[in-house]
Amino acid sequence: MTDSAYISAFLSNNQKAITAFYSRYKASFVRIIGSKCRMFDSDTLVDIYQDATCRLWENIQRGKLTNETLTTTLFSYLCGIGELVAFETLRANKEILITDSILHNSQISDAEVSCYYYEKEERYQAVRETVNKMGKPCAPLLLNFYWNGYSMEEIAQRLNYKNADSAKTQKNKCMNKLKSILKNKSL
């Protein structure tokens, strides 16, 4: 698959293609980031890779990265994100043994770096935290609808709802519950 096809796949949440992308570049990514930051063990490098892939997806979803704005290969872009995630991980663990030079050695320009920076806006962080805490019945329902892209009929069958309408009502209730929690947090 070409970079352009992968970008389209990330944009349309094509899970098969995203998984293929993830598998294809994992070994190279871990080798490159591992050689730059030798203090990371293999588990941490895999975590960094997952985080970088999620941020790549997020940048594509938010329109920060498109076929037109991509000036290097998608893998180089991913490595750029990976270096930033690695840097943040070190900083968070107060183990900064490397300096900001990691950013200057990056294969991407400063302008692009600013695009990769993780959205640390309070609002989205709070939304993410609330969504990640969500359990049954809302989590499977909303994930099946918004992530897997199933229709309400399919969701009703999979999750044993009486019919599509009751699944839809429950979905909207879950969404409103999330909204009210977040509104109470003054978001």
Binding site: S23, Q50, C54, Y124, V127, L143, Y146, W147, L182, K183
Partner: peptide, 29 residues
């Protein structure tokens, strides 16, 4: 403002889905 909040929620749900999918892939491997 409600639409913006809903967009953020949808984004966060998809991000959770994405992370769970990558984690599942890692477990499979």
């Amino acid at each position: 403002s409600e639409m913006q909040l809903q967009q953020d929620i949808i984004m966060a749900i998809r991000e959770r889905g994405m992370r769970e999918m990558l984690q599942a892939e890692e477990c499979r491997r």
